[in-house]
Amino acid sequence: MNIPDFFNGPILVIFFFKAFACLFSFMYFVYSFVVYRQVKTMATTVQVKDSGIVKRENLIITITNLQILISILLLIFSILIVFS
């Protein structure tokens, strides 16, 4: 591949796609950890006890943990994309 080929056609697009996929996946991973920490703080500040249906605090923390898991999977996915 010579330099003019790189700047013309889809190669440049794919290159930027891979770079942004990794960058944004990593940013989302960091963001999910920040949200996790903040939710811990929120749940300590405001504690809603058993509402009769579900313990909402537990539900919120579970969803936040799920967000971290998704961010890790997304990061792995983006790394796989770089090598695809």
Binding site: I14, A21, F24, L74, S84
Partner: peptide, 13 residues
């Protein structure tokens, strides 16, 4: 412009 694997990533993202 992308292959199916990359395209799937954009939708999930």
């Amino acid at each position: 412009l992308l292959n199916p694997f990359q395209s799937l990533f954009t939708y999930i993202f």
